[in-house]
């Protein structure tokens, strides 16, 4: 039996042009991020989740990140936003899972867990997530807001490492990607995004 599991829907957006070079297209690996520096925001809506008896159903997690392909090993800097409706035990479990400190399948999906990374902050935030297919959006307090404009209608199979290359998903165009925090300040229009689902356990 697994000690913990989180499963639900996933949506992300970054400053790359669609289709994002970090995806696999028909199984073929992409390359360097479009502008050398990747700035993005990721979101997970947990539909079913538990960690050692603590229920995680219905909670949301958002992550804002930056990495540069020109830095040695392209280490990730990231801020983790945890649902402010979560109690202490739930927040601790979410932090341990989403930073990659807990052992489990998520480690193979989170570049910030398998690479060198800097966790800049963990913030409780009012997290709203509506992962409507093709029209999804999410918000983490006053820090992060992402809105999807429309899906990218390519006939190819596009997969992303964070939900997992074995899962189906869809490339989208983000109408807007806005992040405003001490560490990050960026705003993009019409860049790439990706929607899928996830199921991590350990």
């Amino acid at each position: 039996m697994s000690v913990w599991r989180v499963a639900g829907s996933y949506l992300e957006s970054c400053n790359c042009e669609a289709i994002c070079p970090c995806r696999r297209i028909d199984g073929v690996m992409g390359g360097r991020s479009t502008y050398g520096i990747c700035l993005g925001a990721l979101s997970w809506r947990i539909l079913e989740g538990h960690a050692d008896g603590v229920k995680l159903d219905g909670l949301g997690v958002v992550l804002a990140s930056r990495y540069s392909d020109d830095e040695e090993g392209s280490p990730w800097s990231f801020v983790l936003y945890l649902d402010d409706r979560a109690d202490e035990a739930q927040r601790e479990a979410l932090e341990a899972i989403f930073t990659g400190r807990l052992a489990g399948s998520q480690v193979d999906h989170f570049p910030w867990a398998w690479k060198a990374s800097h966790l800049l902050a963990v913030r409780p935030a009012a997290i709203e997530i509506e992962h409507v297919p093709g029209r999804g959006w999410f918000r983490a307090g006053r820090y992060v807001e992402v809105r999807v404009g429309h899906p990218v209608g390519s006939g190819e199979t596009v997969t992303c490492v964070i939900p997992g290359h074995q899962r189906t998903g869809r490339e989208v165009i983000a109408e807007s990607l806005d992040v405003s925090d001490e560490a990050f300040e960026f705003s993009f229009r019409g860049n790439c995004g990706y929607e899928s689902d996830f199921d991590y356990s350990g």
Partner: peptide, 10 residues
């Protein structure tokens, strides 16, 4: 056991 099993960097 929980430490060994649960912590990635155990």
């Amino acid at each position: 056991l929980t430490y060994a099993r649960v912590a990635r960097d155990a």
